[in-house]
């Protein structure tokens, strides 16, 4: 009976050690993943005190590579600075029904396409908490490169390090990019 008691104490201490050492790793993993995605309407959502709005979604394919598309996405963030600081960073990724995930492109060469695809010809830069002051909506522009066949069924997930594993999930329906400038630049509408 006495031995069973020692075994029980050993088991309990082992479990406590496991939880104490594993919990920070589990929390850190949670900050990387978006396990709790909350479905938002097609254009508006709120997460941890920040209002997120989708303002423009356009897609175009390049004539010489019809299997791939560029998707331009403009969104606005608005809320108190303290709420934005709790986000720490801002991630806006596209996800397919089968779980593939596309991140926004940061390379300067392809960002030139934003100026072609945006309705006002401006590039407001990738989503960043620093740009959100609370007084007015802050506008951000993302561009993605993905297979053209995936454009019909995409989910946009928006989150920050501090909000994850919670995230906002927007169903995305890109419009055709039909400006004359596009044709001159080699882009083609659907």
């Amino acid at each position: 009976m006495k031995n069973l008691g020692w075994l029980a104490v050993t088991l309990a201490l082992f479990i406590v050690t496991l939880v104490l050492t594993g919990w920070p790793a589990f929390k850190d993993l949670g900050h990387q993943r978006e396990w709790k995605a909350v479905a938002a309407s097609s254009t508006e959502g709120e997460l941890h005190g920040i209002q997120v709005g989708i303002r423009e979604v356009k897609a175009a394919v390049v004539d010489n590579r019809p299997d791939r598309a560029l998707l331009f996405l403009r969104m606005e963030l608005q809320g108190p600075q303290s709420a934005m600081e709790s986000w720490t960073d801002c991630r806006a990724s596209l996800q397919s029904a089968s779980g593939e995930r596309w991140l926004p492109i940061e390379g300067y060469s392809i960002r030139a396409a934003i100026q072609i695809l945006a309705s006002d010809g401006k590039d407001n830069g990738n989503c960043s908490p620093a740009g959100v002051t609370g007084n007015a909506p802050a506008t951000f522009d993302q561009i993605y490169r993905l297979p053209a066949g995936e454009l019909d069924n995409l989910i946009l997930k928006v989150s920050g390090y501090g909000t994850r594993p919670e995230a906002l999930a927007f169903p995305i329906r890109p419009k055709c990019a039909g400006s004359p400038r596009l044709n001159a630049s080699g882009f083609r509408c659907f």
């Binding site: 299997d67 791939r68 593939e100 995930r101 596309w102 390379g107 490169r145 993905l146 297979p147």
Partner: peptide, 9 residues
């Protein structure tokens, strides 16, 4: 070094 590879491409 400067390339990034996207799912499905």
């Amino acid at each position: 070094s400067s390339a990034r590879f996207e799912p499905g491409l």
